[in-house]
Design a binder for these strands. Sequence first.
DNA 1: ATTGATTCGTCAATAGACCGAATTAATATG
DNA 2: CATATTAATTCGGTCTATTGACGAATCAAT
Lengths: 406, 406
Amino acid sequence: MSTPLSFPPSVARQLSRRSVFEALLHRSPISRADLAKVTSLSKQTMSEVIDAFEQQGLVRPVGRTRGNVGRTAVLYELSPDSGQVLGIDLGAQRLTVALADIAGRVLAEADEPTDSRGGAWTLDQIARLSDRLARDNHTHPSRIRSIVMATPGVVNPKSGAIEMAPNITGLDHLNVVGLLGEKLGSPAVLENDINLALLGEIWHGCARNVDNVAFLALGSGVGLGLYVNGRLVRGENGAAGEIGYLPIGGDPLQAESRLQGCLEYQIGAAGVVRRYREAGGSEVGSERQVFERAQTGDPTAATVVEETARLTALAAAAVIATVDPQLLVLGGSVGSRPDFADKVARLVLQLSARSVEIRTSTLGRRAGVVGALSVALRRLHDEIFGVAELTTALPLPPPAQRSASQ
Amino acid sequence: MSTPLSFPPSVARQLSRRSVFEALLHRSPISRADLAKVTSLSKQTMSEVIDAFEQQGLVRPVGRTRGNVGRTAVLYELSPDSGQVLGIDLGAQRLTVALADIAGRVLAEADEPTDSRGGAWTLDQIARLSDRLARDNHTHPSRIRSIVMATPGVVNPKSGAIEMAPNITGLDHLNVVGLLGEKLGSPAVLENDINLALLGEIWHGCARNVDNVAFLALGSGVGLGLYVNGRLVRGENGAAGEIGYLPIGGDPLQAESRLQGCLEYQIGAAGVVRRYREAGGSEVGSERQVFERAQTGDPTAATVVEETARLTALAAAAVIATVDPQLLVLGGSVGSRPDFADKVARLVLQLSARSVEIRTSTLGRRAGVVGALSVALRRLHDEIFGVAELTTALPLPPPAQRSASQ
DNA sequence: ATTGATTCGTCAATAGACCGAATTAATATG
DNA sequence: CATATTAATTCGGTCTATTGACGAATCAAT
């Protein structure tokens, strides 16, 4: 329970390093004098810290100031080759990989169709694509120090293993984290794709600087990412946001509802197609066609789309009533269609007691990789400058406690 | 943005003090030698810290060790009069007040019917009762250093003001925080009563040591408290957990639904009574009688109760699908009825994809005050030993960032 | 070209905080 | 009563950060 480690004076140095690093992260080419001002550390301390950083290869000089009165200052920035991170988005159709340096500068991105054979083939494909990406960018895979992969399905927050990956075959029984880390030579972590898309929107997308966000993704399935109090909500089993199981749109005790979720049975891609067929619509290959036909005047399709929007809005209203987010982001291949998102937004505002801001995803299918990068980056930073042990709130004593005196 | 204060070596001392305090909190009569072991600080440092604490009046010696080989050690405990906190639960019917010392030992508790005139009378009543409680316990109101009050309705998380208090008249337009703090002579904070009941169960009740809890309270109204990632979820407007507005149990666009909430219209106390009347039941004064009649064989009442349980379970299932808690606690005057809770629990397990532990509140109507005490205590601790500025995660740089070199 | 103002960065001195080792104090045990 | 054992203090040394003084490098003006 109680903190196992002592606090030698070096915590102070650790904190100093941390705040210098943070300043470097945000105002990159910067002089030691300015760093001292920003961090309100002394110039002296600053020189010591920067020297250490430079010896470590974390930081490098980039030119000097010019034009100002007074002596010129040496400018520093985070060294791009001091550490890199890899983000992977493993989708059922598409595999995307991106590389960023320690300062969060995105160096490169690549994607290709996912190997449909699944299992070990998929892992091989990931390794190959990542490797190529690194080499094409004049860097070496060994520089990569943190890897995060977005995957559909439920990721167990304790073991980090994939528990249900409906659309990618043969991954549930593999030690994906272990194998991936081994193949790529650095620690890898998995996270649900919707959660990472949400984090992507928070870092680079439409949800910047918002602390309470709900991300509703509607595509082949329906899912929710939750960001509350500035932190991702995973849930006890990693199953937070599995709103396919919301008791909305049908009888939740029915067989289909129990199997794939009451709501998902209706508004998932398969559900949309089924409802269109049941309503007498002609044969379609995918849910996309239903939406396209609705736009070109097919009344049956329009009704199906309308009902889909209504159910989506009900789900959104349920989430809003439960967590009261500041912002609702609509995403996914269906959810981010402008016509559809508009309908949903209008309905949500009618349904909710208080008004919520609603936006559509700006990163689209890139959201997953970007989010993966952001987590990989954060993990790397924590590894170098972590102060996790110090941050926990003072736990209150258990009830049994009674005064020893009197 | 960046940390405004510097880190003189005294952060180290602050952290040491903090961890010594924590150890004192949990293993109260304890010697300096043992403290040194537990915190893994040196005996030397420990003596310095304890000396300072003693001078400050935070700690006091209580006897010595006996019976062991070697020199006896002086035992210390947190001094009960070094700081006290007050918890208040302002209910529509009942006003409860409790006093605890800095170590979380509950010193006294008192309650009486709420002054039905509301507004300023209620505030006066609170001040009077609190004052009496302090004096009856040989302490002085001036020793109280932190006050937290539970109140029904939505509390704005930014201003701390009551925004909707449906059952207590004349409080919404008063500066309750200010007046209360003034009357009682120390800083006061408001929090929603269900949120505090949840925190009460987490501190002293049935949800100890659980990090993801949903507390579903069903009484005159219906509400939810959410505890996620070890923190309370308030929502952007303090309206998280307003599940009366879940689109369950009726048409969410209907006038009643929009006004008081779709779900609440059905399963709130008024809704239960109304449904019983509509189903042909004889006249009843309160929802309680409906539940009692159901138990004594009234078939109409039984049907109404059954439907209430079903809707409650649907709401619970919605919450579980959204946040995936480890534990669901049922509370409130209706929700904690054993017969009712059993029904709901059975239904929830049928409805949810994965099994969740379900318990009923163990603190009952005390939950609110206990939770208020826990928050008041935490605020006091943070005031003395806060390290809040250091705990924020390293923010990632914004997307605009580009390398200055090349 | 010289001088002055201004800013950058280092040096040296000092204070706060920690630890480990040695020392003194107080007790139980044989 | 001597001895082992544990508690607490004293002392010396290390690490970190601050402060003020000072040299170095530049722009601006004479």
